[in-house]
Amino acid sequence: MRRLRHYARLLAVQMRTSLTLAVQYRFDFFLEGALALFWLAITLIPLLVVYSRRESVAGWSFPEALVVVGWFSVLKSVLDGGVTPSLNFVVEGVRKGTLDFVLLKPADAQFLVSTARFEPWRILDFLGSIAVLVYAFHRLGHAPRAGDLMVGLALFGVALILLYSLWILVVSVSFRVVKVDNLSYLFISIFDAGRWPIDVFKGALRLIFTVVFPLALMTTYPAQALLGKLTSAHALLAGTGGLAFAAIARFVWKRALRAYTSASS
């Protein structure tokens, strides 16, 4: 209990620090927020072009595909606002050697690096994405059913866990390869493919996006859940997948930390 309170307080302090930082550079962060909206618009362009030519693609109608895009953007805003800033913090820490200070603090290092930085302005992006989702359901002519919404939200949790686990894996790599500025670019560029329903992809890409970098579990399945089209088998698969990835990530993190402390100078 005391431990829990300790970590709750730590989280509060970390968030306060990020907020103070954000206020210091409010122009930059505002610009970043506006840029995110710009990118959201760019995201929609190929979708609009495709659906100006066809009624449906790989079994997905325009509003349905829009649900996937909206869902993808929601996740992306969480990624940009809550995950990537911390990733950059770690990468910089590894390069400058200041990560040592984090490791000397009497709290879980994974917790500390995961909560190191937030970008509060990303809330703009988040709201924009929600607007896309609302519009999509407006086009569909009906709101998601309560039960579907519950499953969708549960899968949102799973998606967050997946995203976070993948991110921890990337950070673990950063311990070994110090020059990893590009890794976060890579992460985001692959994540970008999540805006399309998984049925669009065939063969190797489909396998990669389901198993290796499980975009399907993160965007397509939750969208299907909201649309009431997800089979329970797939829901179950998503849940197990999320837990498996979380376990793997924690394991790899522990190994990487150990390697880091025994190899660096």
Partner: peptide, 30 residues
């Protein structure tokens, strides 16, 4: 029980006043 000070590396948050780092360490060490 221990502490480490490195002349070449710093734990102070670069863009914030030192008081913020102190507050953070207070929370970290409970």
């Amino acid at each position: 029980m221990i502490t480490l000070v490195m002349g070449q590396k710093q734990q102070l948050l670069w863009d914030l006043p030192p008081a913020e780092t102190f507050a953070m360490n207070r929370a970290l060490f409970d």
